[in-house]
Design a protein around this nucleic acid. Sequence first.
DNA 1: TTAGGGCAAC
Length: 607
Amino acid sequence: MLSKTHPTKLYIILPLDRFPSAVHFSSLAHTQKPSNLPVPLTKEAFTTLLQSCSSSQNQLKQIHGLLLTTGISIKNSLITHLLTNLTLLGEMSYVRQLFDEMHKPRIFLWNTLIKGYVKSELHTEAASVYRQMHLLSVRPDRFTYPFVVKACAELPQLWAGGAVHAHVIKYGLEFVSMVRTELMIMYMRFGELDWADFLFGSMVEQDLVAWNALIAACVQNGLASKALGLFRQMSVVGMKPDAVTTVSALSACGQLGCLEIGEEIYGMARKEGVDCNIIVENTRLDMYVKCGSIDMARPLFNKMPQRNLVSWSTMILGYATNGESEQALTLFSRMQKEGVQPNYVTYLGVIAACGHAGLVNEGWAYFSQMAQSGDNNIQPRKEHYACMVDLLGRAGYLEEAYSFIKSMPIEPDAGVWGALLGACSIHQDVKLGQHVADLLFEVAPDTASYHVLMSNMYAAAGRWDFVDKVRWRMRKNGVKKVAGYSAVEFNHESHVFYGGDRSHPESPYIYEKLEVLLNQIKSLGYMPKTSSVFHDVETEEKEITIKTHSEKLAIAFGIIKITPGYPIRENTQAHASLCGLDAARASLGLELPSYEVKSFDVSHTNN
DNA sequence: TTAGGGCAAC
């Protein structure tokens, strides 16, 4: 590669077949012949070479070698260029070596290194670079913190982030809006809502990105109603939402099951000229799916101007969670025919579809397809094992499910054991259930649903002594069961019902209607299943608990209120708290209900 | 030479 044709000047010869980009380079060097020409090795030449080779790590490494052999490596800016380019390619270990060899790197380079680690999701490394910087008394600048804070947000504990926040204040950078936005996101990640609110509220200028970050963080933390509240507040202060805002708002509607509000938000976005790109449309598709409205999801999916893997996976999962297993599997094969490569999420939908339809063999086939694919991206993960355990368990193959878990090449997590516990509960296998529960309570001692499952199973077996024990353990561990509720959307309002709830102003009519409906179905042979009610109560009382279950109340209300022919949708996602929903309604300018909800459903959670 | 926010499952 190197030829010394002049005693004081170095030249490089670029073989064009290995350096296609060198054509550009040679022409810049004003050469006549297009191949293998010696070019003076100047700093400018290297800069040009680096620019034209920025997307190939091999070429960059060759240039590095060249720099080393020519002694030009002293030139800091060249190394900086090289390092920046390698960072963009995610070559972090190489970058780190390069960085460590440098003498007193400038702040720009420290920032580049931290940024590179964050982009490669090596958050601990990013934080430790910052720490090293701090120890060496390198003064950070306003470009340092957005990424350092981002890294801290991904660490297991908040203390590092708190310390960094203190540094931000010390260096007088707390009002730099990007730094503040990242701090806000960090506090939200750790559930420190008050801190996030404070940072947002005391911003010098709340720009669109800050609004979007906060709203998105709310959605990601399950605070969908707060997100919608902020969305409303945003328009009050005259900030126009963009595609990112719309995605968060639609996602919030999906979580809350507020289909009509979501439709309004989408309609407004269209009217306001928001760029409704594929991400917006995928979120809308997902909202329909989460609101149980597969009939709206289907045409949207079919008419989407462009579809990507997420669109396909969402639709497949949509079919699977709404009980249309065959459609899910058909869509999966159509997807493959159209040459779209599935990933691990797609397979979750596919296996879930098999589970719902009791297609054990098919489930196995898809699972092995994943394992044998050789594709790293679709190797079975814990979630797939959990899904398979659920599939086997539902179909009654409890022992098989158990040995399947035992044969797992990866450590099973609570989700996997939880799936088996669920199956034990369905099939009332108390012995295996007990064993599983013991394992589970060690891994996840404060997950309410496992305790409830266990308690229900003991109740079904008439082991009230054990029921008490589970409840005692829940109290001891401070496990609180989340009250299940059901919601029906009517007249742009979400009407929420807890079990046994009589706080709705129309309660008398609702209960009257419910009585009529229950008598009708009883005459058709319906027997309430009283075995799994949480409490050891008399059968009659259990029947009351079951028949005033939140879902039944919601449906009775729906039947009274909603025009015949208008669908009553089941929301598959309702998990938000009631006060949250109220806040959402209020903030969206919807009428607040005058009733209060006080009672709680203890029979079982929804879904 | 540098910078922030968004989609699918648990």
